[in-house]
Write a protein that binds this DNA or RNA. Structure first.
Length: 757
DNA sequence: TTGAGGCTTTCAACA
DNA sequence: AAAGCCTCAA
């Protein structure tokens, strides 16, 4: 069978072992994905129906990739294999079977932002100060609890919550759960926890699923948490055909509740487990693999392995010490440029890794300056942009009118004169009557002074809700989204604003609608519910645009499962990587070290490790010592370099220039320097540097103002003044007027100004 | 009562 | 760099 031809002995054994529990311990680069995809193909070839196979991975990217590779081997019928992430599999199960435990199909998935908004409301209701008790902290504690075994085994959450003097955490937790139910919303943890509850409480649903799925494959098993462990266990309990794949050295999600015990105890938990180890590394050169291995061997809590490179010798690792973060950026970009010209490498062969998203900015600036296309995985995501979240909140709310978080996001967006006071009143009535906020608006239950915009809002939402049942059939989803943007007045509002920023927001909204159009092409029965779910869970890719030949920038976490010919592992400094929050505990350091191992083992041919001696963060500039992980790499594998920034040698003039002046001035200078020679391409939307510097210039022409620059005017309160700046157009004309003692910025539309005659 | 601009604070990794 | 609070104007 040619399916097995390309596999080594152990890989082949893993593919052929189809019945009963199977544990595959797969070191980095050992062809793990190949084994999984070939195993799926083999099952299908053996006559197993594709829809009987259930496979989950950790990221959407990996799931997509896996499906493509399966389809490459078996053809279009591979499309019916159930390949998803754990979270999207759980969401699928709950939408299909959730009614058995009173979860309605149209539930909304709350992301971290939605969660924090809700918690903030709860804190304010309890007369607690969200400034002192941070909603983000509460959210992460709640999430932590829900990942715990005790919580899933029915221990009272009040006993699991930390004790704080300032407030009653259990009360906040209860209110949070009640509100989530009222809003018909689930957070990321709920998707998993509620699936566990469903599998436990509805034997009928479980049976249905067990009839449907008979072979199970779980990728990245070392990063599963307790609820994921249970889901796999319950689903596979009928057939016991559970295959898990993982590597304890690559466990990097303990902060999300991942429990290494799941993989370490798999053998004990499942009788007759077959264990297969994949130790042959096909990805990296000997230097890279040995170096990575030397680092991870400093961990005490790990299983020892015997990993071999099948690729043999390659180039040494390059370690570069840069004087500051600019030097680091220049070093990386210079190496990309020179490698591209010396060897036949494309942009897509390069990846830049960093520990935290905030480190990406300087690399972006330099890449843009050199006009090298790049893409960022993670970070500030397309779907996190305000305008995108706003438009999606309309859709979410129309699908699920109990979703009060989305309601308050859109009720006054665009501005309709329904401010905080009015919103509070609506909440108050809803609470006292025990009904939803939307019912208050729909049935016009607000007494006293009702803002005039409220009726408009009601009409907008009602009109859209009436169209909703038609969406998958007659109206297309993309058409419906276009209606939302038009009917809500959102697009009109941005159009009137008429700034560079607002037009870029319009572009983003158009981009969203385009991506919805693509989405409905790929799935002709796409419902709004399905779409919302997919994007709520799909956050790893940034822009739907540009898929072409790009340098990839991402955090080390995001790099898991990927490989690149050339990797730059940057910011290798104590307190950056290892991160300062992990540095105090042994477990923390070990996880950082595994993360470093993951980063190093992504590289196929070459790896560059960089650290900056001086780095500016939001607090100020700090001297940094090289990461302890660099010390753990044997020197014979390394070539050392140092690099001093050609553009900003901060160190040389540190005292007089950087102690006193704010960072932003230096950044502006950098931006100016970066945009020199690039003026011919002013309309290139990728060139944000130029756009942002243009934005500051006052609009002089066509403002439509009845005044002109330097004209003298009279204000009843401020007296006589002189116009020193005119910005905006039409109703938005803003006048900056110097009244002698003080300067004021006034809107021409409202300001009671007269010409001085 | 709403909206806009200025000032202050704060900063991990992800589905 | 970005988000939240405070103050001022209409």
């Amino acid at each position: 069978m040619n399916l097995l031809e390309k596999l080594n002995k152990n890989q082949r054994e893993a593919v052929l072992h189809t019945e009963g529990p199977l544990l595959i311990l797969a070191g980095a680069g050992s062809g793990k994905t190949r084994v999984i995809t070939h195993r799926i193909a083999y099952l299908i070839e053996k006559g197993i129906r594709p829809y009987n196979i259930f496979a989950v991975t950790f990221t959407n990217k990996a799931a997509e990739e896996m499906k493509n590779r399966v389809m490459n081997i078996v053809g279009p019928e591979g499309n019916s294999v159930f390949i998803k992430t754990f979270h999207s599999a759980a969401a699928y199960i709950l939408r299909r079977f959730g009614e058995a435990i009173n979860i309605t199909k149209n539930f909304t998935i709350y992301d971290m932002g939605d969660q924090e908004d809700l918690i903030k409301k709860i804190l304010i209701d309890l007369k607690l100060d969200p400034k002192k008790i941070r909603p983000a902290m509460i959210a992460s504690k709640i999430s932590e609890i829900k990942d715990k075994e005790d919580y899933l085994e029915g221990v009272d959450p009040a006993l699991l919550l930390p004790d704080y003097f300032a407030f009653n955490f259990a009360e906040v937790f209860d209110l949070y759960r009640n509100k989530m139910t009222e809003n018909n919303a689930l957070d990321f943890n709920d998707l998993l926890c509620q699936t566990v509850r469903l599998l436990r409480e509805s034997k009928d649903s479980l049976k249905d699923m067990q009839r449907m799925w008979r072979y199970f494959m779980i990728d990245e098993y070392q990063d599963t948490n307790y609820s994921q462990y249970l889901i796999a266990k319950y689903l596979s309990s009928a057939t016991k055909n559970l295959c898990v794949v993982g590597d304890d050295d690559q466990s990097i999600y303990s902060w999300r509740g991942a429990d290494i015990k799941n993989i370490l105890n798999f053998e004990r938990d499942n009788e007759n487990t077959k264990v297969i180890t994949l130790e042959e590394n096909y990805r990296s050169t000997k230097q890279i693999l040995d170096a990575a291995y030397c680092v991870v061997q400093n961990n005490v809590n790990r299983k020892n392995k015997n990993i071999k490179s099948s690729r043999g010798d390659g180039e040494n690792i390059t370690w570069c010490i840069a004087n500051n973060e600019y030097g680091e950026g220049e070093f990386v970009i210079n190496n990309i440029i020179s490698l591209k010209s010396r060897e036949k490498l494309s942009n897509r062969d390069f990846a830049i890794f960093y520990r935290t998203n905030a480190q990406s900015r300087i690399f972006e600036d330099y890449l843009r300056r050199e006009k090298i296309p790049y893409r960022i995985i993670g970070g500030m995501k397309f779907y996190d942009r305000k305008e995108i979240k706003d438009i999606l909140a309309y859709l979410k709310f129309i699908v699920n009118p109990n979703d009060s978080i989305s309601l308050f996001r859109i009720i006054n967006t665009p501005v309709r004169g329904i401010g905080k006071a009015s919103q509070d009143k609506i909440s108050e009535i809803a609470r006292s009557e025990g009904i939803s906020e939307w019912t208050v608006i729909r049935d016009e239950l607000m007494t006293g002074k009702v803002p005039k915009g409220l009726d408009d809002f009601k009409k907008i939402i009602t009109a859209l809700m009436n169209d909703l049942p038609e969406v998958p059939a007659q109206i297309k989803l993309s058409k419906f989204m276009t209606d939302i943007v038009e009917i809500s007045g959102y697009r009109e509002n941005l159009r009137e604003e008429n700034t560079l920023e607002s037009s870029s927001r319009i572009d983003n909204i158009n981009e969203l609608i385009n991506s919805i159009y693509d989405y409905e092409q790929s799935d002709l029965d796409a419902t709004p519910e399905q779409f919302i779910q997919d994007i709520s869970l799909y956050t790893s890719e940034q822009n739907p645009e540009e898929k072409h030949d790009c340098v990839t920038l991402m955090t080390v976490h995001n790099a898991k499962g990927l490989e690149f010919p050339v990797v730059f592992l940057t910011g290798m400094e104590e307190n950056t990587f290892p991160h300062k929050f992990s540095i105090d505990t042994e477990n923390g350091i070990e996880e950082e070290r595994r993360l470093c191992y993951v980063g190093l083992t992504r590289a196929m041919d070459r790896i560059f490790i960089t650290n900056a001696e001086l780095r500016r963060n939001f607090m100020g500039t700090e001297y940094k010592t090289p990461s302890r992980f660099i010390d753990e790499i044997p020197r014979e594998y390394m070539n050392m370099k140092s690099y001093i920034s050609q553009m900003f040698n901060r160190e040389s003039k540190f005292d007089e220039r950087f102690e006193t002046r704010p960072y932003i001035q230096n950044r502006d200078k950098f931006k100016q320097a970066a945009s020199i020679n690039k003026n011919e391409n002013r309309n290139d939307p990728s060139d944000k540097i130029i756009i942002s510097s243009e934005k500051k210039e006052p609009e002089k022409r066509e403002s439509g103002s009845r005044f002109s620059l330097k004209e003298s005017v009279v204000h009843p309160e401020f007296g006589v003044g002189k116009i020193i700046k005119i910005e905006g157009t039409g109703d938005n004309v803003k006048l900056t007027i110097d009244f002698g003692t003080k300067k004021r910025i006034l809107l021409e539309k409202y300001a009671p100004l007269d010409k001085l005659n």
